[in-house]
Design a protein around this nucleic acid. Structure first.
Length: 261
DNA sequence: ATGGTAGAGCTTCTA
């Protein structure tokens, strides 16, 4: 079961690039972030025609997440628990059943800039809510994949130029500590685990500005976090870096993990 | 300190 995450930065602008990648990579399931539209305006038929079932949790103009899955989506829940007043569409869960039942948690973690400030406070509060939900997911003692755009650079090696990020909400000590606190519950960072002693990267995001892609000035902020029961099923994982060089690309590229599930 | 680019949707915000 090939499970992927892709921050597409606007579904309307990315129908072509997303469709091309789906054809080439053929994931069984992909969680999308930054669809930037309401549920009714998601181009559902286009992806249903490609054989995908849909669960959408959208919002006008900003944020918005979705799941495309070749297997039926069961027990879909929308929104991160812990704050009924939070109206930002950043979190969705579902279960898919192949050889094993796998719980999927797709997320778009707040950016948090500028820091300090209210947006950074929201980021840290959101991460505390995620920590609580992540603990409940581990307690299920089943294969769980918690994946998406975490907007966290975990370590200096996850940036081409870490010095450029020292005052950024993606790399501040409090952000990294909050991510570490969740990871230390028992999650496996699939891309890190695949290359534990690599010197840099693999990167998953290159800014549209400043020729970041041309200079390979990237960061690793899209993560695949695996429960122990999911980690035991991994057969391969990767980053589809070449997508960033395509026509009308997102600033992120797809990340994926293949499970014997 | 600023602006560089991109998307959505509207003349600005978010990233």
């Amino acid at each position: 079961m090939k499970i992927a995450s892709f921050n597409i930065n606007g579904i309307k602008a990315r129908i072509g690039a997303l469709g091309d990648w789906l054809q080439a990579a053929a994931p069984d399931l992909v969680v999308l972030q930054e669809i930037k539209t309401v549920d009714e305006n998601f181009p559902a038929a286009h992806f249903e025609d490609m054989g995908y079932n849909l669960a959408v949790h959208g919002q006008k103009s900003f944020n918005g997440v979705a799941i495309l899955s070749k297997l039926p989506l069961e027990d879909v829940t929308r929104g991160l628990p812990g704050d009924d007043a939070d109206e930002q569409a950043r979190y969705i869960e579902a279960t898919v059943v192949g050889d094993h039942a796998v719980r999927i948690a797709g997320l778009y973690l707040p950016n948090g800039n500028p820091a300090p400030g209210p947006k950074y406070d929201y980021k840290l509060a959101w991460m505390e809510r995620l920590r609580l939900r992540a603990a409940d997911l581990l307690a299920l003692e089943m294969p769980v994949v918690m994946l998406g755009d975490f907007n966290i650079i975990p370590q200096p090696r996850d940036a081409a130029e870490p010095a450029e990020w020292v005052k950024d909400a993606l790399f501040l000590p409090d952000s990294r500590a909050a991510f570490r606190r969740i990871a230390a519950q028992g999650w496996t960072d699939a891309l890190r685990d695949a290359d534990p002693f690599g010197r840099r990267g693999p990167f998953t995001f290159w800014d549209f500005q400043g020729g970041a892609w041309r200079r390979d000035n990237g960061i690793r902020i899209d993560h695949l976090m695996l429960s122990p029961q999911a980690a035991d099923l991994v057969t391969s994982s990767g980053v589809d870096r070449e997508v960033r060089a395509g026509e009308k690309p997102s600033d992120h590229v797809p990340v994926w993990v293949d499970l014997a599930a």
